[in-house]
């Protein structure tokens, strides 16, 4: 079966493996993780808008590319931490084709899940080879049956700005509502096959807020993060969202509270409360604290002073 469907309306874009930029689906297709029809969203209308709404929000359609999101003047001005994340992940060519919808709903990048030579909870079997191998990518918070960290950098950024997800058939969701608690053995999000993610909404920027994105990775480009963070600093609205450490993008309320209390860079020490790891991923506990501290140093440095 080698079928590709080209629906033109959102309501038709169901019953198959949805594809836009192909950065996730084509890999799984090649490795036999996908069989059956592809639903190519190329011709589906109404998913490409990137518009300012009255009141200061911005909505981006599911097919808006990460390159466009990263360079849009509205997004750069209002949500710089999100623009930096969208413009810094993967490679320039991937960002040219990868979309908002694909970035949020991509499947786990765990090598065992993607290998045709293994089965796991998420590939129709049971067990977790990554846990058995004590792999260095494994989560250090809230690991469920699957220990792979959530792959979406955009989701981390969206969480840091209290962004919303718009899904046909489901309504408006917060990021935690989209992903659940990460304990489902077989899936990364809570949308059903009939529900179509149509876009995101960024709430109005808070006056005086600064924000940024920082990741630690084993290669500057074309690599997945070991740990990454998007932080928004504004009194009464501190947000610290992190990726690479849990099955879902997560906030760190203890760090946020310490920032609200004026602790500054020292607030990073609160990041590791509750972290658990096997020896293979224990380094991530230290790395998480240092990643947050590094970003805080950058964001809190006086203007014109290099941290």
């Amino acid at each position: 079966m080698s079928e590709v469907r080209y629906p033109t309306a959102q309501g038709q874009a169901v019953w198959g493996h949805r594809r836009a930029g192909g950065t996730d689906v084509m890999d799984r297709l090649r490795h036999g993780r996908i069989t059956g029809a592809l639903v190519d969203l190329r011709d589906v209308a109404g998913l490409e808008g990137l518009v300012a709404l009255p009141g200061g929000s911005v909505e981006a359609g599911a097919k808006v590319t990460l390159a466009r999101l990263a360079t849009d003047a509205k997004v750069r001005a209002g949500w710089p931490g999100l623009a930096d994340a969208a413009g810094g992940l993967a490679t320039p060519q991937i960002r040219q084709v990868a979309t908002v919808g694909g970035s949020l709903l991509q499947r786990t990048r765990c090598a065992w899940f993607r290998s045709p030579d293994f089965t796991c909870h998420k590939s129709g079997g049971s067990g977790c080879p990554a846990l058995a191998a004590d792999h260095h990518w494994n989560s250090i918070f809230g690991a469920g049956p699957c220990v792979a960290p959530h792959p979406s950098t955009l989701a981390v950024a969206l969480l840091a700005f209290d962004g919303l997800v718009l899904a046909d058939g489901r309504g408006t969701l917060t990021v935690p509502e989209l992903y659940g608690d990460g304990q489902a053995a077989d899936r990364e999000h809570t949308l059903t096959d009939e529900q179509l993610l149509v876009g995101i909404r960024l709430p109005p920027p808070l006056p005086g807020a600064t924000s940024g994105w920082f990741r630690t990775a084993s290669r500057a480009r074309a690599e997945w993060p070991l740990v990454e963070a998007v932080i928004r600093l504004v009194p009464g609205g501190m947000r610290v969202a992190v990726g690479g450490v849990a099955p879902v993008p997560m906030r760190l309320p203890a760090v946020e509270a310490a920032l609200e209390a004026g602790e500054g860079v020292a607030a990073a020490a609160k990041a590791i409360a509750g972290a658990t790891s096997n020896p293979g991923s224990a380094y991530k506990v230290t790395l998480l604290e240092r990643t947050i501290a590094t970003l805080l140093e950058r964001l809190l440095a006086p203007p014109g002073v290099a941290p």
Partner: peptide, 19 residues
């Protein structure tokens, strides 16, 4: 991003082997 109406799949172009 208005709420779409569901349209029958029969109107979707399908390509299994295509020229």
């Amino acid at each position: 991003m208005t709420t779409p109406t569901t349209t029958p799949m029969a109107t979707t172009r399908v390509a299994q082997d295509l020229v």
